[in-house]
């Protein structure tokens, strides 16, 4: 299965990267943008998708500071 793992900074934790992007957009004329957060996208082919949550908890994310979400699909290899 092709899967993508979306990794987000946990709600409530100060996200200076999101804040920097939020401040930069109006400078380019993009008004009305709020609540910007920057996370990570991990795409992978996995033989046993049932093991994905364990992969997320043990290596792909740090559950203390990040939330994760698994989606099926994604851009197929090879690109």
């Amino acid at each position: 299965m092709r899967a993508r793992v979306l990794v987000r900074p946990k709600a409530g934790i100060l996200d200076p990267q999101g804040q920097a992007v939020e401040r930069a957009l109006p400078a380019l004329g993009f008004q009305g943008v709020r609540n910007v957060h920057v996370g990570r996208l991990i795409e992978l082919d996995v033989e046993d998708p049932e093991r994905l949550p364990e992969m997320c908890d043990r290596l792909l994310t740090n559950p203390l500071i990040e939330d994760w979400e698994i989606e099926e699909g994604g851009i197929e290899e090879p690109r």
Binding site: I13, L14, P16, A20, N62, L64, I65
Partner: peptide, 16 residues
């Protein structure tokens, strides 16, 4: 911290 031998985590500096 990643090894759970210590509590908490280290995040990017506020200044980036």
């Amino acid at each position: 911290c990643e090894a759970h031998l210590l509590p908490g985590a280290l995040l990017p500096n506020v200044s980036l």
